[in-house]
Amino acid sequence: METETLCSDEDAQDLLRESQISLLQLSTMEVAAQLSMRDFELFRNIESTEYVDDLFKLDSSVGSGNLKQFEEVINQETFWVATEILKEPNTLKRMKTIKHFIKIALHCRECKNFNSMFAIIR
């Protein structure tokens, strides 16, 4: 049985090159909107009793899984920002990355997503 190639090696290389995108190519407004939507989805799943149960270390039927998941996302956002900035060896690109994150944080503030805003600027 003979297999047929779907595309040439040259086309495959072009597709691979086009599929790799950097943070600086992403719209700051769109990144902020996506962060806000993800955070809101997690936030709305938190039961109001989870806060009290977690604060006073009470056992409950609901638990505090949604609250912990929301906390973890904020920690991931903070780690993501630090990682993106520190992995850039070029000083000019690092400066552009920091500026890009500041713009994302400003858009998060406009979306009233203060959790992501503080996670980014921290």
Rank of each mutant, 00 (worst) to 15 (best):
M1T: 02
M1F: 04
E2P: 10
E2V: 15
T3C: 03
C7H: 06
S8L: 14
D9T: 12
E10Q: 15
E10M: 14
A12N: 09
Q13M: 12
D14E: 10
D14H: 03
D14I: 09
L16T: 12
R17Q: 08
R17E: 05
S19T: 10
Q20C: 03
I21C: 09
I21Q: 10
S22A: 13
L23G: 00
Q25N: 09
S27H: 01
V31P: 02
A32H: 02
A32D: 02
M37T: 07
R38S: 06
R38C: 05
D39W: 08
F40A: 06
F40D: 03
F43L: 08
N45I: 05
E47C: 07
E50L: 08
Y51T: 01
Y51L: 08
Y51C: 00
V52I: 12
V52W: 10
V52C: 04
D54S: 14
L55K: 11
L55T: 08
F56W: 10
F56I: 11
F56A: 13
F56R: 14
K57G: 04
L58K: 12
L58V: 08
L58I: 08
L58Q: 10
D59Q: 15
G63I: 13
G63Y: 12
N66R: 10
N66C: 12
L67G: 04
K68I: 11
K68Q: 10
E71H: 12
E71K: 14
E72V: 07
E72H: 10
I74D: 02
N75G: 09
Q76F: 06
T78I: 10
W80C: 05
W80S: 03
V81Y: 08
A82S: 06
A82P: 00
A82G: 04
T83D: 07
T83G: 00
T83V: 00
E84S: 09
E84D: 08
I85D: 02
L86H: 11
K87F: 07
K87W: 06
E88A: 09
P89C: 01
P89G: 01
N90W: 09
N90R: 14
N90F: 11
K93L: 06
R94L: 08
R94A: 11
T97I: 13
I98M: 10
I98H: 07
I98K: 14
K99N: 04
K99M: 05
F101M: 05
F101L: 01
K103H: 08
K103G: 07
K103L: 14
A105P: 00
L106M: 13
H107A: 08
C108H: 02
R109W: 03
C111W: 10
C111P: 00
N113A: 03
F114I: 09
S116Y: 05
S116E: 03
M117I: 01
I120C: 05
R122F: 03
R122M: 03
